[in-house]
């Protein structure tokens, strides 16, 4: 079982495909759940506390906007734990909780630079492209299993 970071980190399709193969997708929702269950947060609806930009300093410089650092305090631990990564280019993640282009760029940069196996694919728009995406993910996961088996 390999811990695989996915991008977009809240993707249904990526998380589901990996779980089907018995691997652990590192998803944003688990981080959020830890956050909202933290009894130390005075006002739980405010998910980002003043501590978070400080934690985010591990991943981004002080000049980086606090919004990016705050997001990195949640996405950063996913990158730390990742043993492999799947990045989907052109995915519709410009919405909702991760609609921050700079955080997305920084996270993908950190994943690429981590020295772990990274699969980069394009978000499909039709049936044939979806076949290619699913096949590539399955091949990537198989190659990870082989590497883990050799070790």
């Amino acid at each position: 079982m390999v811990k695989i970071a996915i991008y977009p980190p809240n993707s249904l399709i990526l998380a589901d495909l990996l779980e089907r193969r018995g691997h652990t997708p590192l998803v944003l929702q688990k981080q959020i759940r830890q956050k909202i269950k933290d009894p130390e947060i005075d006002s739980p609806p405010m998910n980002i506390t003043e501590e978070d930009p400080i934690k985010g300093l591990k991943y981004a410089a002080i000049e980086v906007p606090s919004g990016v650092r705050g997001r990195m305090s949640i996405i950063g631990p996913i990158i730390d734990d990742a043993e492999a990564a799947i990045v989907v280019d052109g995915a519709p993640y410009g919405f909702g909780c991760i609609g921050c282009a700079r955080t997305n760029e920084l996270s993908i940069f950190l994943l690429r630079n981590k020295g772990i196996p990274v699969l980069e694919i394009t978000y499909p728009t039709n049936q044939d492209e979806t076949y290619v995406m699913v096949n590539k993910i399955n091949e990537f996961v198989d190659s990870l299993e082989e590497t883990a088996g050799e070790e």
Partner: peptide
């Protein structure tokens, strides 16, 4: 049938 984690 697909499944996904939810934070809340």
């Amino acid at each position: 049938i697909f499944t996904k984690e939810r934070g809340f």
